[in-house]
Design a protein around this nucleic acid. Sequence first.
RNA 1: GGGCCCGUAGCCCAGCCAGGAUCAGGGCGCCAGCCUGCGGAGCUGGAGGUCCCGGGUUCAAGUCCCGGCGGGCCCGCCA
Length: 635
Amino acid sequence: MNPVATAIVAISGELTSALRLDEVTTFRALLEPTDEKYGDLSFPAIRYTKDVKGLAEDLRKFLSSKGLNYVSVEQVQGFLNFRFMCPGLASATIAWLQSDGNLDVIKAEKVSTVVVEHTSANPIHPLHIGHTRNACIGDSLVRLLRARGHRVISRYYVDDMGRQMAIVALGVRLLGGDLDSIITKTNRKPDYVIGWIYAVTSTTVDLMAAKAKGDQDEASKLASALVRLKSQDPIGVFDQLYNSILSLNDPEKAISEINSRYESGLEPERSFVRSIANAVLRGFTQSLNRLGVSFDEWDWESDLVWKGLVKAIVDEIKASRFYTKHKGADAIDVPMIIKEVLINDPEAMKSIQLPRGLEIPPLVVLRSDGTSLYTTRDLAYSLYKFSTSGADRVINVIGADQRLPQLQLRLALLGLGHRKEAINMFHYDYEAVRLPTGSMHGRRGEYVTLDETLETAKARALEEVRSRNPQVDSRWAEEVAEKVAVGAVRFAMVQVSASKPLVFDLSKALNLKENSGPYLQYTRVRALGILEKHGPIDYGAANPEACSEQLRSLMLSALRFPLVAAKAADDLAPELLASYLLSLADRFNNWYEKDAVIREQDVGARELKAIVVALVEQALRRGLELLGVPTPDRM
RNA sequence: GGGCCCGUAGCCCAGCCAGGAUCAGGGCGCCAGCCUGCGGAGCUGGAGGUCCCGGGUUCAAGUCCCGGCGGGCCCGCCA
């Protein structure tokens, strides 16, 4: 560990035992940002002891006994202020670097196996920016937890069952059923073609229902959506599709028949529906690869059903004392689980966090026609995720609109005796992404897709890259523009906390100025430029005495990286790392304007500065990698 | 009707869970400056705020509690 991390960990440990606190409390207090005039770390000791002066004295003795002579302790009012002092800090840093020091994220003391399920978009239309937020958050969590030393398995839940999937299948079938030829007729990605078919089919079916109900308002809205969809026709088959649907006597029946035959695993639906889902997933994989997101496992919902896992859980429910009928359908009595199990289990209460006064209805597990519901299958899937991965913890990155079903799920697991799973399954919820123009409607084909977003971002970045590098060949410019585009999108998606709705304004995300992914990429390129010009660093020649105040604080910031990343991982808070990186970059750019490395005449000072630049570069590079932001060497 | 989330300068947001010390911050946009010399996607300075409102707890509240207000989401044999 580097000198700063070592000292912070040591101080935290000492305060923990001296004041009999838990380690998390002290560690967090020490990582809180402080006003620089008070020092580099501060601890509100008055909260825990009357004898602040004595505590300060103890810490001084402790630090000197550990050889941490570069840290000073000052007592001001009720606070202990720590300061890393420069010649000492610089020498310790140089020594540490000479023995192969690097900025690895501090490893967790207790390594665990964690499943992160994320993205899991239904295979019926292209990925849009809502899924993009999910993918960026999920993948950043995966990277952070891995860096922290955990064993992490990323999983994608392919939701290929249910009504929506049956609707697409109906649409494709009405177009003749030859999916490959439909797709090859266009040069669009398969997810776009299928997304369009889905939107037309679903909207037409809804239009028929609205007309049947006599709902004129709704019908005219749907009709105008269809006009738009017709104008977006990628294969010239709108009329054929639209008319075939209208000619159906009972589209609902056709849909539920496909659904039920697919659930039973009957041909031809079994192969047909799969082939559609697979085509869409090919499109997804392409888009996700661009973003740098990949998965360890793709879990098919249909497999869970066909393997009998869903039936097994239904049998379990039927045999359970919490089995009930709700409006005539098989259900699980969630209110009774709360009353009889949850409130007698403090640990489960703490983990599940039931909102007070919330009335939760029983959870229906089977439709009257015997087919399963989404939550039923998810119940089976939850157990599957734990058992196949040997997971200690499962994190589900799912939109906040699914809070209630996720809560019901955990309660159902608890009631069925799967207590460990219920307690260790965590719904990482994030708020929706909205457009400045309003909400998106997948069923109407109204969305801004990930691909479009990346393309627009890339085009914008390309202009910038070309204007800065007029001589460069276009292939290189394209590669860099791609990295900038991906960096802009990924950073924009994680820098805002997940609990805030994100209004996605394309032109704002593409603003390549401060507080953006490209700003960080650019800052790192500057640092790298200095290092390349400077050449290999001569650690032995570096002079610790040449450490100015600005250089000291820059070095300190970079050396904090392993702890900040560890905290971001523990708190599942990528935005913490994002704001740290921005402040590190700001600090570096400030210093950069005022001081010089290559032109520094004094060798000792020059080598020390180069060392700090190298540390900043490393912290930025590693930090960006954890957020999935590419790190071009030139741009 | 009930539950949850959000409400900080014209705009976007950090800080709130784990209350502290000029704590009211950062960015965008705007205004005024800095381009022979490590890349200006940068830097310096300026204007701009009842931290939604009202109570309460505390030596101390943007942060905790209660009550409102505004916006979003959820309360389906959809996913």
